[in-house]
Design a protein around this nucleic acid. Structure first.
Lengths: 74, 74
DNA sequence: TTGTAGACTACTGTCGACA
DNA sequence: ATGTCGACAGTAGTCTACA
């Protein structure tokens, strides 16, 4: 499993936990809905700034997203 | 201070802690030396895969780099 | 509500050279 | 050992549209 696939899975879990639709999350962090879709399916490797943007509406620290990603990979 | 500036500062601290030159670190994580220089000066926003690549030779978990970045920003 | 496609812009990351 | 420059290839991220 690749880093971006693991990150996508984490993002999806956190998004669903917060009861966001992809659309709602996209709007909340000022990103495109189709881009959220791409990330969740492991088709994109977001920059650190994007990770920070995603983390905010998910009410989780950015580093937690990476930590969960690492846990999935190991 | 921007996210990328904070990350650059963290990277530099960790690199120096491990007694790497930019060149040595670049070689160890298979990135370009000038790119390490750009990141440390906050001129680039690395992707999550790049963060993972940088973390490995620094012998630190990727999420720790983000955590230290967050601490600098706050 | 989500996946996907295509066309597009902006920027990440490479490389060679020189101070 | 590092900063910087310019040129470049590849990809992050946008937007419209349709299943």
């Amino acid at each position: 499993m690749s880093i971006e696939e693991a990150f996508g899975q984490v993002l999806k879990e956190e998004r669903i936990r917060m009861k966001f639709s992809q659309e709602g999350l996209a709007h909340s962090c000022d990103l495109d809905r189709t881009y959220i879709s791409l990330i969740e399916r492991g088709k994109r490797k977001p920059t650190i700034n994007t990770v920070f943007a995603l983390a905010k509406p998910l009410e989780v620290s950015p580093h937690i997203l990476l930590k969960k990603t690492e846990e999935l990979l190991r």
